[in-house]
Design a protein around this nucleic acid. Structure first.
Lengths: 354, 354
DNA sequence: AAATTAGGTGTGTTCGAGCACGTTTTGAAA
DNA sequence: TTTCAAAACGTGCTCGAACACACCTAATTT
């Protein structure tokens, strides 16, 4: 019933040699006669030896200094969650010698990002976790880290044609499809649907475009395009025209508006407008469990939120690095996190996991 | 930047004593002069020493034999997932000396359950994970385990007025409310809604009743009762009348039927009927990612499934026992798992977690 | 006064893996 | 045959915590 743990010593005894030799075989350190190596390998196979990583990590005492490059949560509160996630992971993994230094940059200033990325490189870390929101600017750093053999994990924003240890985040296309499905389920009568990109520099946000593609693809596949008219708007109100004016205009153009899909975490802006104007029948779907979003979810002005699990992104990002560095596990190049559908009724269970 | 790990030896040196003495203080083993004890405690506080559990568990070599009492997956495939979950946990925790013996009982035979529960008791395990689907019969065992100081974790079915280490599962009431919310979102026009308990002994399944209460509560709160007529039916077709006959009857009584809520994992039975009869407009919501359910989810005959995360129940159940026994962590008496809303579009991410 | 006991305290070994270093063997050159 | 380096292999210490055991001292019993 109780399986005995197989130790290096056991292998050595069975192979009539010493643990030093077995150790050399295990770590390919050479200096072992071929016949002995063969014999030992066979026995390892036989007993299916698995290294005791408790003993391993006790011994190795090695510390790993990781760097996390994330946008400033004070500028955009969305980033609080990934930060919390990586801190949670750090706490769990400190035992295994994982240390993280956080480098926080301003998501609206490229120079700030570059400065921090340079700082990260200078630290010569054992691994990097990064939210690569500046596409063009991050590429040279990826190159440099690659030559220095520093593994880096991407999260939040997927970037093609680079070679990270892995990407953690959501499948944006699928995410758009999911939003479409939900809205479609809630709409019986025809009408128009607004896809809103709010306060976002679209040219630098490929994932928002991908979401929209997924969204439109759903309706295209359903061949219900005739029934629903889908219009896209970029809404920016930091400078110039106000939100209300822009939305007023949209409603004038689309009097039949029956649903709004907000592609980032700013659904509360639309919700505020709908509440003030008393437009209770317009379905609203957005992203992320930010405080203002949750308020409107509770009032049922926002119908559903899709959770990107930003905490999980930070948490798993660090864990993937640890799995690679400490536990030498094989890492899948992509880890898609679930597309959680959140409504007032199941919200609680997603708020602070674990 | 790098925090040094504080060891027992460090404390000993600072207190001008030996690690043996510090050890006695740490474990309250007595035989330490009062002044020395005070001094050591203060230093422990100061350096905020945290035991290195890697070294701890390497040394202690203690093994923990757990027992898992679960229904036979061959009788009801629902139980495959918890089984897989606890096996996953076992794999992760074997390093820490956790062993599990599975005792599988027939969920339709009380005697089988009692026999296995007795067997479990005889093994004198260090902890028990149990799906207590037989309410009355399980109570004496809880009592016995309590006197023997064997911690037990409940999952799937919550039982009041007993004192488990913790309960893992869902909030059934909330689960019912969630289902109501989804259905309500999808229905604009009036009609009647069927709550179906399929092939289940209701008298012994309190959680199904609770789900229905939550479901009805949602509509009651909304005061939309006038708009929607909610009817409950127990549908059993293992003996006597067939499923089709019973559903035909229901449809005759309720020609306006616009949605069905199945309280357990048997939604596919209704789906099969709806498909055969070509009733595409009836919304169907049920539970659990069983193969037949998934097929109908893919065909969009089932609109949404609520995931009880049965794999997670097994997984976390074992982990809670380990947290208690091995890591001496404080355990929350209830761990509600998220009420995941699953549809065709986000299904993939819930299928094999991790 | 000698013997015993209880109260304190320090030392040394163990867990399994990793690695430095020391030792033996081998084969080829002197 | 002797010499010597490279190859092959074994020994022993280390990581931090746990615990058995040995040790010392002072108080109590005979």
């Amino acid at each position: 019933m109780k399986k005995k743990i197989v130790r290096i010593k056991d292998i050595a005894e069975k192979a009539q040699t010493s643990k030093g030799t077995v150790d050399r075989v295990l770590h390919n350190r050479g200096r072992v006669a071929d016949d002995v190596r063969e014999r030992i390998l066979k026995i390892i196979e036989e007993l299916n030896y698995e290294p005791n990583f408790i003993a391993q990590s006790l011994k190795s005492q090695r510390t790993f200094n990781l760097v996390a490059l994330i946008p400033d949560p004070h500028v955009d509160p969305y980033w609080e969650a990934p930060k919390a996630g990586l801190e949670k992971a750090e706490k769990e993994l400190r035992q295994y010698g994982i240390y993280i230094s956080q480098l926080i940059f301003n998501p609206h200033e490229v120079t700030s990002f570059i400065a921090k990325a340079e700082e990260a490189t200078k630290e010569n870390p054992d691994g990097v976790l990064i939210a690569p929101i500046f596409y063009k600017e991050v590429l040279p750093f990826f190159k440099e880290w690659a030559t220095k053999d520093i593994p880096y994990v991407l999260f939040n924003t997927q970037i093609e044609h680079v070679d990270p240890l892995c990407y953690i985040g959501q499948d944006s296309f699928q995410s758009g499809e999911l939003a479409a499905k939900i809205i479609c389920f809630g709409l019986q009568s025809p009408g128009s649907i607004l896809v809103a990109h709010i306060n976002e520099d679209i040219s630098n946000s490929a994932h928002l475009i991908t979401k929209e593609e997924g969204f439109r693809n759903y309706f295209a596949r359903k061949a219900e395009r005739e029934k629903f008219r889908i219009v896209t708007k970029e809404i920016n109100f930091s400078e110039g025209t106000s939100l209300d004016m822009q939305l007023d205009q949209i409603l004038t153009d689309e009097p039949q508006l029956s649903a709004v899909y907000v592609t980032n975490s700013k659904a509360f802006e639309i919700a505020s407008y709908l509440e003030r104007k008393g437009l209770n029948d317009i379905k609203l779907v957005g992203y992320d469990l930010l405080k203002p979003n949750l308020d409107y979810l509770d009032k049922e002005i926002i119908s559903f939120l899709i959770n990107q699990n930003p905490l999980g992104q930070g948490y798993w990002g660090i864990h993937q690095l640890a799995n690679h560095l400490v536990f030498k596990k094989e890492i899948q190049p992509i880890k898609f996190l679930p597309l959680d559908i959140i409504t007032k009724e199941n919200l609680d269970y997603y708020l602070d996991p674990e």
